[in-house]
Amino acid sequence: MVKTGLESIAAMFAAAKAQNRAAFLPYYPIGYPTYDDSLDAILAMAEAGVDGFEIGMPFSDPLADGPTIQAATQVALENGITVKRCIEAVRTLRDRGVDQPMLLMGYLNPVLAYGVEAFVRDAKAAGANGLILPDLPPEEAALVGEACAQAGLALIFFLAPTSNAERIALVAERANGFIYLVSVTGVTGARTDLPPDLRDFVARVRAQTDQPLVMGFGISQPEQARMMSEIMDGFIVGSALVRAGGESVSAVRDLAARLRQALD
């Protein structure tokens, strides 16, 4: 029996938890620095033992992203990467043996342009497990949410340090797969220091939900990964891996392996 997207994601958290650690989900955009390199980078990370992926789909106006991912996804667009090719990339990665959960991450407008139902259908058929759209808060998500629910795909919602109890309750009620906690008020990008009130933020959310909690934004170093492993169910690293991707596929593999090993 083939697992649904949601079941695969749940299994990922359960496996990491059984090893007493957080799940490590790298973000990597399709098409950077080239289409082939991006697939090789993702494959290399899969072999390095990461737990799942956020597969980045480029958008011309990525307003939740900092300079590193902006520049990389701009290159991807110049390389002719479309939503269609990102979905094809997921299929190719599955064919090449990637068995970790893959969540497509992008912005709403390209998904709308593709057609929400067609997108969810094609993403699922290619082997994607979920969808992450930072510009789609839960109260606007009815259309996408319904399509994802029917297909068994996760639609991930966010919480931020600015979220009050009311927002936490709303997101907790609508969430499936996991809740994406943004570590800082800000955009994506590697940061040396994470904010001191991070544990309070996580505790506030934890008090209101049993959903797996995954943190992203600003995480780039093994010691930060270790801290994540203590307080979170999962964490995301993006910009630091993308920067490594600008150097070489092996630089991506090395960083992913170091971050993964920090959890053991």
Binding site: L63, A64, L108, P134, D135, L136, P137, E139, E140, F157, F158, L159, A160, P161, T162, S163, N164, R167, V171, V182, T185, G186
Partner: peptide, 12 residues
Amino acid sequence: GGRFVPETLIPA
């Protein structure tokens, strides 16, 4: 219309 923004901005 509507409000399609990152969660961080919703409280603002």
